[in-house]
């Protein structure tokens, strides 16, 4: 029971943000601002969560170590399962693949509603970005879905 709580809440958050945007007027600019709002929410939550989850773990060796932690412990704590596949090009780009992403399972399991998926992934992208940011890695996170409920998160670490 407790598992579904966050999923319900998340669905409602997405609906609420889009309803607000519709009330203000529907233009292209407004649509993207809802996504930014959701991503921003996720960012802040990610920062707080990662602080909590890394409280007791030792410090990380390098970027790969951090990504592994995110794939295993962090993802498990939030979505109750691990990332199924992590790929990297060792140059700062990582692709996290989740074959049964918790927030998408209840929407469809095929191609239906594919165009609605981005709305429901914005928050999670922010979550990832916030977690990484607090660990010292500035990144750009994007998500893509080709077949629900599997999705891929692509993380590009910004080095400056």
């Amino acid at each position: 029971m407790a598992d579904a709580l966050f999923e319900f809440l998340h669905t409602e958050i997405v609906a609420h943000v889009y309803k607000e945007q519709a009330q203000r007027g529907d233009t292209e600019k407004e649509r993207s601002s809802s996504l930014s709002a959701l991503e921003g929410m996720g960012f802040r939550v990610g920062q707080g969560l990662i602080e909590k989850f890394t409280k007791d773990s030792p410090s990380f060796k390098d970027d790969l170590d951090i990504m592994k932690f995110v794939c295993k412990d962090f993802w498990t704590n939030v979505f109750r399962k691990q990332i199924d596949n992590l790929r990297t090009n060792h140059q700062g780009t990582y692709v996290l693949q989740d074959n049964k992403f918790a927030l998408l399972t209840q929407i469809s399991s095929g191609k239906q509603y594919l165009e609605e998926a981005p709305k429901f992934l914005a928050f999670s992208c922010g979550l990832l970005r916030g977690a990484l940011s607090n660990l010292g890695l500035e990144s750009v996170v994007t998500a893509e879905v080709s077949l629900m409920p599997a999705c891929k998160f692509q993380v590009v670490i910004q080095k400056n």
Partner: peptide, 16 residues
């Protein structure tokens, strides 16, 4: 200190 700081961090009214 760390525990208390984590709580502060999770407080939505606190901006990192």
């Amino acid at each position: 200190l760390h525990n208390s700081f984590t709580d502060v961090m999770c407080n939505p009214f606190y901006n990192p």
